[in-house]
Design a protein around this nucleic acid. Structure first.
Length: 184
DNA sequence: TAGGCCATCTGGTCCT
DNA sequence: AGGACCAGATGGCCTA
């Protein structure tokens, strides 16, 4: 199922119908309306969930959250939004430097990361092949790069037989490009 | 309609 | 102490 090629969309907040166009949605901040607690307890966040499950979210006192607390939350939400925007900008920058078949088709985040990983591998392998494991004009770092590469190979590094040679990296990268294009 | 992808909110934890 | 980071939850949009 493909969801690529969508124009960037602006999220329409559920309770924000009256917000002016281009205006940022007012944050929700509805005490007690949050997600239901879930089952498994594992990680840090799972523990957090456990806490939520037991007492749920911190309940607002009489009269709801304190104003200062609400203000802090709003500021925190804004920072989180900015952080995610920066992350998305970085994803976009990455998309722009990864060659792929259909430039008009936006890569998803997971596709971007996967392609980038294999692109780097293929470039590394190509460089090593062309320089025989030695970077041109450099006496020291060349062999180090080669050693690092070999360590990665020896450690498994998720490389299968097809990736034992530079052609293998290229092959995988190329295959991936096409599978993304065709919509796997 | 189901499923994928995404933005946002949220609260706990980590870091400075 | 306050900001950054993380991950779960939720709901919207889109495509098949």
């Amino acid at each position: 199922m493909k969801t690529k090629n969508r124009p960037p969309r602006r999220r329409v907040p559920p309770q924000d119908a009256e917000a002016a166009p281009g205006e940022r949605r007012p944050d929700r901040l509805q005490p007690g309306s949050g997600p239901e607690p879930t089952k498994g307890l594992r990680s840090r966040t799972a523990r957090a969930q456990g806490a939520r499950a037991e007492g749920g979210r911190r309940r607002p006192g009489p009269g709801g959250r304190r104003e200062s607390s609400v203000q802090r939350r709003l500021e925190s939400n804004e920072r989180e939004r900015q952080r995610m925007h920066k992350l998305n900008n970085a994803f976009q920058a990455l998309r722009e430097v990864i060659p792929h078949v259909r430039a008009d088709k936006k890569l998803s985040k997971i596709e971007t990361l996967t392609l980038a990983k294999n692109y780097i591998k293929s470039l590394t392998a190509t460089i090593l092949t062309m320089s025989s494991g030695r970077l041109p004009g450099l006496d020291g770092p060349g062999p180090k790069l080669y050693q690092h590469y070999q360590q990665q190979q020896a450690a498994g590094g998720g490389l299968g037989d097809s990736e034992a040679q530079p052609e293998g990296h290229l092959q995988k990268y190329s295959t991936q490009i096409h599978s993304f294009r065709e919509g796997s």
